[in-house]
Amino acid sequence: MTDLDDIDRKLLKALANDATQTAGALGRRFGLSQPATWRRIKRLQDNGIIVGRKLDLDAEKLGFGVTVFLGVKLAAKGRVSLDDFERAVSAIPEVQTVEHVLGMYDYRLRVTARDISDFERVLRRRIMTLPGAGDVEANVLLSEERRPGPL
């Protein structure tokens, strides 16, 4: 684990809130020069603490009005089955996240669709035909009050 000081933590929090901030702006905010701030950010990236920057899009404004969380239990367990399932489900564009979980289901998927009938099409034609797919439980997202933020 990398040792982080208070400035590193402040930089991470600021970047988690708005990753478009420049090293110069962050440096002025935290009393550092632009090169010193850039070196800190680069070190955080090189150490794998900052693993990327992400663009958040408003799915509803882009025509995707339904988000469904699916619990998927595999019909056949085994290493080949897990790998085949993960590879196949990751290729479906409507599947936004694939999480291998412990519990009643083997996977938790976040699926976006234009509407319920579009979701049904994705479920029947793409997800239920995946290698190893067994029982499925769907939970429709009604609202999202808090988005993931800094740790």
Rank of each mutant, 00 (worst) to 15 (best):
L74A: 02
A59P: 00
G65F: 04
G52E: 07
I50S: 00
V80S: 06
G63M: 07
I50N: 01
L70E: 13
R53K: 15
D83E: 15
L82R: 06
L57Y: 03
L82A: 07
F69W: 13
T67G: 09
K77I: 08
L70I: 07
I49D: 09
F64M: 12
G48R: 05
V68C: 04
F64S: 04
V51F: 01
V51N: 05
F69N: 07
V72G: 01
G71Q: 05
K61W: 07
D46S: 09
G48Q: 10
L62R: 08
K61M: 12
V68Q: 08
L57S: 07
V72T: 05
A75G: 04
D58W: 07
L82F: 12
G48V: 10
V72S: 01
L82I: 14
K77S: 10
G65H: 14
V51L: 03
L70T: 05
K61F: 10
S81D: 08
D83S: 10
G48W: 14
V51I: 15
D56P: 00
F64W: 14
L62I: 06
L57A: 13
Q45S: 11
L70F: 10
K77R: 09
T67I: 05
V66I: 11
G48Y: 11
R53I: 12
K73A: 13
L57F: 11
D46W: 01
L55K: 07
D46A: 14
G52L: 04
D83G: 01
R53F: 15
G63H: 03
G52F: 01
L82Q: 08
S81Q: 11
F69Y: 11
G71N: 06
L82W: 06
G48N: 13
L57G: 02
A59M: 11
R53T: 15
A76G: 01
K73Y: 05
L74T: 03
G65S: 15
A75Y: 02
D46G: 01
D56A: 09
K73N: 13
Q45F: 03
E60R: 13
V80H: 00
A76I: 12
